[in-house]
């Protein structure tokens, strides 16, 4: 066990130099790192080669005031029993980042499909960005912070003038 602990402290240093970024060990078994969005494919590939084999998921966060999207790639290493969370920020107006489907294949593609559908982020190199959950959705990406779904549903669905709703207001003669 002591060997593993020793390895972990070394791991932070090794990773920091290999990935050329400063890694912080926030809690036991939780490493976080912030990188430039252009380097994402290289960093993920390096991480995989160093033993971070499992892509847990990709999360997107919409920082509205800052005008940027943050993408978090949650990786896990079965070998070192440590997670590595890679954070990167992209512009909110033209959200675009390279796809990591060359590394985690269709699983990465599926995670990216979700981010594309719910946040409108474009992943270059991912040819399959078809929607997963929403059918016939014409509105803006629904998980954006400036999209108010309460107003949207009220306007679109619960007014008497709405053709979709008229059936509920018809009086039988």
């Amino acid at each position: 066990m002591a060997a593993i602990e020793q390895e972990k402290t070394d791991l932070v240093e090794v990773l920091s130099s290999e990935l050329d970024a400063s890694i912080t060990l926030k809690k036991e078994r939780r490493m976080w790192v912030e990188i430039d969005s252009k380097k994402i494919v290289d960093v993920c590939l390096k991480a995989l080669q160093l033993g971070f084999e499992h892509l847990s998921t990709i999360s997107a966060v919409d920082w509205l005031e800052e005008g940027r999207f943050e993408l978090v790639y949650h990786l896990w290493s079965y070998k070192y029993r440590t997670s590595l969370n890679i954070k990167t920020k992209i512009d909110r107006n033209k959200p675009s980042i390279s796809s990591i489907n060359s590394i985690w294949d269709t699983y990465a593609e599926t995670c990216e499909r979700e981010c594309h559908e719910l946040f409108g982020i474009n992943f270059e190199g991912n040819s399959n960005l078809t929607p997963l959950f929403l059918e016939d959705w014409q509105g803006p990406p629904p998980f954006l912070k400036d999209f108010n779904w309460r107003e949207y549903t009220l306007k679109e669905h619960y007014k008497e003038e709405n053709p979709r709703e008229q059936v509920y207001f018809e009086v039988k003669k």
Binding site: A60, D62, H74, T106
Partner: peptide, 20 residues
């Protein structure tokens, strides 16, 4: 909370693995 993301086990089992 500002943002919550849920990772379910079936997300990988039912889409890429099932298709494969």
């Amino acid at each position: 909370p500002y943002r919550v993301k849920i990772r379910g086990p079936s997300f990988s089992h039912m889409i890429p693995i099932l298709e494969r």
